[in-house]
Structure formats: C-alpha cells, structure tokens
Design a protein around this nucleic acid. Structure first.
Lengths: 400, 400
DNA sequence: ATATTTAGTCCACAACGTAGACTAATTCGG
DNA sequence: CCGAATTAGTCTACGTTGTGGACTAAATAT
C-alpha cells in the first residue's frame, strides 16, 4: 500500500538513489552524481557525507584525470563494513556464503551431504553450525552481517519462513527460518527464485529473464525489470509442472505429462539408464556425451525438446527477454541448448520477431546462495537510512 | 528508474495518496483521512483544499452522524470535472465510452461492423468520428476529457502506439494512435490487457487475477497486486498459443496444438458445425446449449478441457489468485466453467492446497473500453498535481 | 604566471509537513 | 435548557530537507 511521504522518507529515498547510482556506475564523483540523480551538488554532498559516515561508501583516492578543471573525488561502495549471509539447504549439499556490500564473495563454506537421510532438525543444526562459523569469521574481519537469506528446494511461505512442502527433501511444514536462529534477520525463499536473483546480480542476468533451475524438480525464477515475480501466493515459477503432453506419463504431482517427467533429473537419468542421480552422476553423463554415446545424446534431445515446449508456453505467457539455463542444464548445455532453442524457435518465431535467446548460467550451484545474500544487500541499498540508525546505535553516535 | 524526490514530488505523492484513499473509501472526512494516511490533520486539510480547487473532489453535505463531537465534512471523488475516453477497435465492432473520475459511465456509443472488410484507415476514420462525437458531448456537459485509451485485438508497441500485427484484423504495423488524432493524449494497448483492467476497476476483479479473453484469438491479462503485468517486451498473456498438445493440429502461428486450435472462437464454431462466428453466432450456440444439443455440449467439453490444460500451465507459472473468464466464455460459462475447473483441479490440487477459483466476467464486451478509460483515470489519480497544472495552465497541452 | 574550467562547500531561502494551541460544532448529562 | 465533553478543522510557529547561486579549491590551457 502506498505510504505518506514525509521529510525523512524523502531523505531515505534520495540516500538510496545515490547509493544505487554509485553501485551501478562503480564509482562516481559528487558532481557526476548530481548530474545522474538530478539533485543539486549541495544535496548530493550532504547525502554522500551521510553515506561515508555510515561506512557504506568510501572515497577512492582516484580522480577523474586528463580534463580541465578541478578533479573530482570518486566514491565507491564500501565492501569493508556491511555484509550478508547467503545460505542454501538443498537435497545433496549445504552452502554458506558471506558477501559484502560491494558484492564480493568473502567466504565460501560448502558441505556435501544427502539430506534426505536425516531428520529436518538435524539438517538445520548442521547448517546452523556452518552459518555461525561463517558469521564469526566475518565479524572477526570487521564486517557487520546485517541479515541472512536462505534458499530451500520448494515453495515457501515468505511471511513465516516456513517450508510448506519440499517433496524432494520429503519435508512438510518445517519452520526453517525460526529453527536456524542465527541472531540476524533471516529470509527464506524458494531456491529457483534466489538462483535467478543470483544470476541477476552475480552472473549473466540482464534486467529481464527467466532462469530455469534444473534439479530433481524443475523450477523457474522470473526476473522482470530487476525484480522477482512471485505471483499472488508466492508459488509462481513451477515450470516443472507445465504441461508438455496432457495425457503423458503420470507425475508425482498428480497430473500427467508434466515437464518434470521428461526433463527432470530423475527422468533424465532414468532415460540414460543411470540410477545414481547425484554429483558423480552428472559428471558421468557429461563424460558419456563427450564420447558421443547415442543413448545419452537421445535422452538430451528428448529432454531438450520437452524443455523447449514448456518454455514456449512460458514465453507466450510471461514474455521474458532471455532464457537462462541453470542447474544440471548448465553442464548439459552444449548438448541441450541447441534443441531447446530450435524447439522454441519453431513454435515462436512467427508470432514474435524472434524467440528469446537461450543462455547458460555461469554460477553453477552457487547461484542460489549468492542470490540469498544479494537479496539482503538489496534491502540495505533500498533503505540505507534504516541501517545507518542500526549502525549508529551500536557504535559511537555519529553527528546528525 | 528511480527518481530523486524533491519537495514537489513529495507533495504530488501525498496528493495522490489522499485522492486514492478518498476513492477506495467512497467518502471520508479530513480527520479520517489523517488517520488512514498517517499525515497530520493540517497537511490533509491543505491537500484536500488543493484537490477541491482542482475539482477532483467535492464536499458532500453529508456528515458522519450519531457520534459525539463536531461532525466531519466528507469529501468524495468528483465525477463532474474530469473524464476519460475509452475506445475499442475490434474485429466486429467499435466501442466508445466516456467515464468520469468517479468511474461512472457517462456515455456509450457502439457500432457493429465487420472491420476485416475495410481498409485500416477507413476503420480508424469511423472510430475517430465516434470518438469526436463523444468528446463533444462530454465537453458539452462540462467534463474535461484528459485522455483516451484504445483497445485493439493484438500486440501493441506501447511507446509508439503502433499495432504490430493483429492477425484477426489482418493489420500489420498500423500507427493507430497517431492516426486517430483526437487532440488528447492517447494510449494504445492490447484488448485482453485492458479488459483485465476493466474487470479490475469496473467488474468482479480482485487485486490478483488472470483474465481470459476468448475472442477469435485467446488472450489473457494478468493483474498482479492491482497492476498489469506486461512482460519484457509487452507481449505477455498470449494464452492462445500455450501448448495443449505439442503435436496437435497446425495453428496459424506456425506451431502445433496451441490452445486456440481447441478453444478459440473459430475452432469452437467449427466443432459445432456453425460457420457464422459473430454476434448472432454465439447466441445461437447458447440457444442450442439450452436445448441440450449433444454435439454442442461435446464441443464445450473439449474447449473447456483444453482451456483447463492451458490454464494449469499458466497457474503453475504465474500463480494468479483467481481466473476470470470473459469474451465468449462468459455466455458459455454455465456449460464450460465446470469442465475448466475440474481439469484444473485434477492437475493442480495436489501441489497446491487448491486450484484458483474460476469466475465469470460481468462486463461482457464492454470490459476493454472501460479498462482503457480507467487506465487514463488511473494516471490522474497517480499524479493529480500534473492535472491541476494542466487545468490552471489552460492553454498548454503539456506532455507527461 | 594567468585565465579558464570544473569540483565541492557555504549560506540564505523556499517548500512542505509537524505539533499543538485554538476555534467550531455537535452530543451527553443533569 | 445549559454547560461539559468530544471531535473536526484551522492557524501559527517551527523543523527538516532540497535549492540556487556565490564562493573557494584545484586542476589544465595558453
């Protein structure tokens, strides 16, 4: 709902605007900030002073060289004060990342473990240990971790931080957010959504794309104009259950002929006659593809065709600018990308000038954890004033 | 792109906030406005004074009765000063509506005509005559028409107001917006999108729903949190080309087995053996259904099943709260709504608590024209200050 | 060395919302 | 029927924030 704008809200917005422009341009002088924001030099100077106080930006010694006139002092986002924790709890691994406000990854902890074999609370305990260790290390280097994001493989109630139903883990109604209890605010979100945001902020993503996360389930994260599209109940992006053939094979969701039955990890591994679907599995598959194994190539064709069909529906409905393939589709991309693009092209080329390009994710399994951390950093950029208060409360009271 | 907030922007936003609250509550006193907006009584009084000056709200004599204390003077949105023009150019009719800021329809002009038989410029000329006549009548009653919206059956380039490709009219690259030349700003938009907005503002629509427009083509308009979802290029909502059966009948879009081949108006009329697809056609179909004609009932089942399949994909992808069926599906609803809901239920019930409810549009063929007018009124509510300037600066046709 | 140019700061000021005193108009209670 | 209580709305002094232009600072061009 729209909110009244008072002086403090005006200031908060302009502060956010300045910080955002600094980030998108890498570094900027106050004078050029005044130009790009439309604010006056005076105002920009005051805002930058506040951001410097809060430690969110720093002056680089560097100046703009070569031209006439007094050189400007550039400021850039500081990576030494504020950071966020990105967590991922997935079927076969746990991942923790610490990312600073300048979007540099400061710490990586990953643990490979089959979480389907353990009780939810034990898995959460493992993740908690990893996260607390990362927190301690980060704060040891002077970083203030302002929040955490957690990616889980399944739909999430964003308000309560509760996992509704994660079929691949076999979890139902697990309050992960509360159980983690890290001492910092935590936001829980679907893995595909966060991987999409990871791709947006740390990978190839432009402002508009559909990220496809091929895991045991197939999820999609839609980014529109730089923001995640969640749908009315937060369940958008269930690409795995888009119809490929309405009377096709039975899916565990109760329907028939869903994409997951053609291009999901299990279906794919079944098709190539391999029943070890985890990390070693995908490498073996790639090896076979590199050797030109006919059955495996055929499985790729089939999965790629189905993915192309489902994506055609998705493109007709939500019109993404680009398709980014992640998860297992990233290593398989050389063998699957072509079929996907061809299938889409055949179905879409006439109605649109051209089908959206199909690209491959650069981040691998790190995408979701990075997106989770990035989402927290985004809240800082969106309202630096809120953080500044928190910072000043903790430390010496800065002049207001 | 985020914009800097100056004093004038702050004021503009608060003005908009007050006007919006007045509209959503019907009528409000200054004191209750202060409560709901969070602004002080002083500020609200000043803002309301400006809105009264601009003629956007009026004081009702009515007061809040019964309770103790001085009674408050209620204000409500004024329908006597500002209005908008809603236009629709469709395959078999032209429609013009004048709607005032209080969302009352002040004038309806409709002309039934097969526009596929005429040159684009002639059709536009017809619409222009209707529109100018409506403009004159509206201004004769003291209304100031601040803009027009135009609904067309096909994807539109929103910037230029150009129809890209309207296959059902046989039009390509027609600059309708410019050609209409009404002397007021005009916004051109896809018919399904505007019908969705019409349903949102004038019909049954809640804040989140997917509107299905069954015409010769099948379009969809997705409303999320009260706003239209357009996709990256503005082509979202092409429900008619969502896959039902990947190797099904050839579609004119170049693909196979699109929804349009099963549930589009032409396909449907073919299935019942009727080749007169226009207004008389649908009434005849309904008559047959009322008589229990088996072939027609079977055609409804088939179309409803296909629609349910395609909507299942749509729901998995975009997670709308509700489905609203419009266009020809509205009169057919008693015979088609059940099949659609059952098909969806069978495919979705397990993954979600329940499939979205399926409702029927109340507006009939008026939806798009009303949405077009409503969209213009929305810009007034979003920035009353801009209009106020225009009103005072009489002579300047200020853009934006 | 001096003129020119650009960066950044300073200061008086304007725009807007706030706080709370004040006035206005009603109901309640005796 | 009249005064107390209560609520609506206005008025005035004030605080916060951005503005505009003068001013100072630091570089390059001639």
């Amino acid at each position: 709902m729209a909110q009244a704008v008072r002086h403090d809200a005006m200031r908060a917005r302009n502060l956010s605007l300045v910080l955002r422009e600094v980030r998108t341009h890498g570094s900027l002088t106050r004078a050029s900030l005044a130009e790009v924001t439309g604010l006056t030099k005076t105002t920009v100077s005051k805002l930058v002073a506040d951001l410097l106080d809060a430690g969110l930006v720093v002056e680089t010694g560097a100046v703009r060289g070569g031209e006439r006139g007094r050189p400007g002092v550039e400021v850039r986002v500081s990576g030494d004060r504020v950071a966020a924790l990105g967590l991922e709890l997935n079927v076969d691994y746990l991942a923790v990342r610490v990312v600073d406000l300048a979007r540099r990854v400061r710490l990586r902890l990953t643990q490979t473990v089959d979480n389907r074999l353990s009780e939810p609370l034990d898995v959460i305990g493992d993740l908690r240990r990893l996260a607390l260790s990362a927190l301690a290390q980060a704060e040891g280097t002077g970083l203030r971790v302002v929040g955490a994001g957690l990616a889980v493989p399944g739909p999430v109630d964003a308000e309560s931080g509760e996992i509704h139903n994660a079929p691949n883990l076999g979890w139902r109604n697990v309050p992960v957010g509360a159980a983690l209890d890290l001492g910092v605010p935590i936001r829980v979100e679907n893995e595909a959504n966060l991987a999409a945001l990871g791709e947006l902020w740390f990978g190839v993503g432009r402002a508009d794309f559909l990220y496809v996360s091929g895991e045991i389930g197939i999820g999609a994260g839609l980014v529109v104009n730089g923001a995640l599209f969640r749908g009315a109940r937060g369940f958008a992006g269930e690409l795995g259950h888009v119809v490929v053939t309405p009377e096709g094979p039975q899916c565990r969701c109760g329907a028939r002929g869903c994409l997951e039955q053609y291009a999901g990890q299990d279906a794919f591994f079944d098709a190539v006659g391999d029943r070890s679907p985890y990390a070693p599995g995908i490498d073996a598959i790639v090896a076979r593809l590199e050797q030109g194994d006919a059955a495996t190539l055929a499985a790729c064709d089939k999965a790629g065709w189905a993915l192309g069909v489902a994506l055609s529906s998705a493109i007709n409905l939500v019109d993404p600018h680009t398709i980014v393939l992640g998860g297992i589709y990233a290593p398989l991309f050389p063998w699957i990308g072509g079929v996907v693009a061809e299938t889409m092209g055949a179905r879409l080329a006439q109605l649109r000038a051209q089908a959206p390009p199909v690209e491959v994710s650069q981040l691998g399994s790190e995408a979701a954890a990075l997106g989770a951390a990035g989402q927290v950093l985004e809240t800082v950029v969106a309202d630096p004033a809120a953080l500044s208060e928190r910072l000043t409360d903790r430390r010496d009271p800065a002049p207001r």
